[in-house]
C-alpha cells in the first residue's frame, strides 16, 4: 500500500513537473507580440522592422503575429521608457538603432541599456550624403565650398537633435570646419520629403530611405560614410577614398525589456536566427543595401556597451567643440 502510494506520488510529481519542464525549454508567445519601433514612420528603422514583421508572419516563423508600434518621440526616448516600464513582459520586443546608445545618455528618462536583454543584431546600415538632383553640387568639394559660402545658412535636414543624422552632420562639420543649420524632422521619411521639396539642401539619409528617389532621378549621392563602397551605389566614393576619415554606421538590432527570462530570450534569438537565414531577408537586405551582420548573445551586449562608450566620447567632443 505504502509503496504504491509512494510510486503514485512520484509519478504524480513527475507528471506535474513535465509540462513545466517542457514549458521552460520551449517558451512560445501566448498572445500577439508588440514590436516597438524606436523611430517614426517611413524611416529606415521603421521599414526594416515592418519588413521583418511581414517575413515572420508570411512564413509562419512564429505562432503569434508581431504588431509594429511606432514610439519615435524624443529620439526614441518614448520607446526606451516604454520598454523599461514593460519589465518582465515577454510579449514586447523593440527594434533599435543608434539612438539606443545616445538617447539614454542625453535624456533624463532613467534608462540604462545595460538592463535590457539583447536578442540579435541583424544588419549594419550606412549613411550617404545626398543633395537634391536639381542642385548644382555634384562633388564633395563643391558641397564643402557651397556650405562655406553660405556661412551658417546651409540647411541640413535630419532626424531628431542628437540622433545619428545630427552626429554625422557634426562629424562633417568638424572634418571640414564648416557649419550647417540643422533642421530636425520626425523620421527619415520626413527628411527625404523635405529634401525633395528643397526645404533643406542636404541630408544624410540611409540608402534605404533615399534609394527610391535616387532611382527616380530626384536626389544625388555625393559620398558614403562607410568603410567600402556600397554595392547598390558602386559609383559613389567613400569619404575615406576622398581622403577624410569619416566612418559611421548604424546598427539594426532587437532587444527585450529588462528582466526577461532566459527561455524567452532563447525563443527570440532562435526566431531571429531563422530570419537571418531566410532568402526573403537576404533579398531585402540586398535591395536596401544593408550589410547583413548577425550577432547575438553576450557578444551582442558587449558590442552594445562598447558602442555606447564610443558614442559617449563622440558626444563629449561635440559639446566641447560647441563650447569653443
Amino acid at each position: 500500500m505504502r509503496r504504491d502510494f509512494l510510486k503514485g506520488a512520484v509519478l504524480g510529481a513527475v507528471l506535474l513537473a513535465l509540462p513545466g519542464l517542457a514549458h521552460a525549454a520551449e517558451w512560445k508567445p501566448q498572445r500577439p507580440v508588440e514590436m516597438v519601433i524606436m523611430a517614426g514612420q517611413g524611416g529606415g528603422a521603421d521599414r526594416l522592422a515592418r519588413a521583418i514583421q511581414t517575413m515572420i508572419q508570411k512564413n509562419d516563423l512564429s505562432n503569434m503575429p508581431f504588431l509594429p508600434v511606432n514610439k519615435g518621440g524624443g529620439s526614441g526616448a518614448e520607446a526606451l521608457r516604454y520598454l523599461k516600464d514593460k519589465a518582465g513582459d515577454p510579449h514586447v520586443i523593440m527594434a533599435t538603432l543608434n539612438s539606443y546608445y545616445t538617447t539614454p545618455l542625453l535624456t533624463p528618462i532613467g534608462v540604462d541599456i545595460a538592463e535590457f536583454v539583447p536578442v540579435a543584431r541583424l544588419a549594419v546600415d550606412d549613411f550617404v550624403l545626398w543633395v537634391n538632383a536639381d542642385s548644382d553640387i555634384k562633388t564633395l568639394d563643391q558641397y564643402v565650398a557651397a556650405v562655406k559660402k553660405q556661412g551658417r545658412g546651409f540647411k541640413m535636414g535630419g532626424t531628431g537633435t542628437n540622433q545619428e543624422d545630427s552626429l554625422v552632420t557634426a562629424m562633417v562639420e568638424r572634418a571640414f570646419k564648416v557649419q550647417h543649420t540643422y533642421v530636425p524632422f520626425q523620421g527619415g521619411g520626413e527628411v527625404a520629403k523635405a529634401l525633395l521639396g528643397n526645404h533643406v539642401q542636404a541630408s544624410v539619409n540611409n540608402p534605404s530611405e533615399a534609394m527610391q528617389f535616387y532611382k527616380a532621378g530626384k536626389v544625388r549621392p555625393l559620398a558614403v560614410f562607410s568603410e567600402k563602397r556600397l554595392p547598390e551605389l558602386p559609383d559613389v566614393p567613400t569619404m575615406r577614398e576622398l581622403g577624410h576619415e569619416l566612418v559611421y554606421t548604424m546598427q539594426r538590432s532587437f532587444v527585450l525589456p529588462p528582466g526577461t527570462p532566459k527561455e524567452v530570450q532563447a525563443y527570440y534569438v532562435d526566431l531571429f536566427r531563422k530570419v537571418d537565414q531566410h532568402p526573403e531577408w537576404v533579398k531585402y537586405a540586398q535591395n536596401m543595401s544593408l550589410t547583413r551582420d548577425f550577432l547575438a548573445g553576450p557578444e551582442l551586449q558587449e558590442a552594445f556597451l562598447r558602442e555606447r562608450q564610443q558614442h559617449q566620447d563622440l558626444l563629449a567632443t561635440m559639446t566641447a567643440s560647441a563650447a569653443n
Partner: peptide, 23 residues
Amino acid sequence: VGLDMISGQPRLIFGDLPGFYHG
C-alpha cells in the same frame, strides 16, 4: 505634455509619471 520631438526632453510629465511620456 510628453517628449519634445525636437530636443527629446520630457515636458510636463508631473514628476515622473510614465503614462505621460507618450503625451
